[in-house]
């Protein structure tokens, strides 16, 4: 059963990822991105990361992709990109070679390191009758708000800075101001 889920989710992820880089229209690329993000969320559920799966759907598919679509439509840049002509000759074959090489290095590292990483951590609570159905969320919250509380606060500062900076960047200059 888990094998079936894995194959379906992997097909979703790979189809969406290929769609992002081959579709000419930016809106189509954004919708392919949604397919990939849902596939990743399915794999999160399959690996007992239930809270992260929910956050993945809400934040990525719900907020980030909508932000992309807003920008595409607000700017009117939804023109079809010409993928036939490549201004830099030999750049595309070199890019394919580089990413295939990167893939080869990563897969070799994964296959070589198989079974090496076997130090056991403190454990992940799986949802069952003893832990309750929200065990993953509870454990993640305990981790974030105790061990990583400083990082959590710094992240909130980062978000505030990002919002203020974006407002400053995209603000139109005042009328009459030099």
């Amino acid at each position: 059963m888990e094998f079936f889920v894995f194959v379906c989710a992997a097909l979703m992820i790979l189809l969406g990822a290929v769609g992002v880089i081959v579709r000419k229209h930016p809106v189509h690329a954004a919708l392919s991105l949604v397919l990939t993000l849902f596939g990743v969320a399915v794999l999160f559920v399959a690996q007992e990361a239930h809270f992260l799966a929910a956050v993945q759907v809400i934040v990525y598919a719900g907020a980030i992709v909508v932000l992309f679509l807003f920008v595409i439509m607000l700017l009117g840049v939804d023109r079809v990109e010409n993928l036939r002509t490549e201004p830099l000759t030999a750049q595309r074959p070199l890019a394919i070679i580089a990413s295939l090489g990167l893939l080869g290095v990563l897969v070799a590292a994964i296959v070589n390191g198989n079974g090496v990483l076997n130090e056991r951590g403190s454990g992940i609570n799986l949802p069952d009758l003893q832990n309750g159905s929200d065990a993953n969320t509870v454990q993640l919250a305990e981790s974030i708000f105790s061990q990583y509380v400083v990082a959590f606060e710094v992240t909130s500062v980062l978000l505030v800075i990002a919002v203020v900076g974006t407002v400053l960047l995209t603000r139109k200059a005042k009328l009459g101001a030099k």
Binding site: I64, N118, S122, G123, I124, S143, Y148
Partner: peptide, 23 residues
């Protein structure tokens, strides 16, 4: 590795990715 810290890191990566996209 049976370690919750991996999932905690993913949480932070998502937040930073959202900030990065906004900027």
């Amino acid at each position: 590795l049976n370690d919750i810290n991996g999932q905690t890191i993913v949480f932070f990566v998502m937040v930073v990715a959202a900030a990065e996209v906004v900027v």
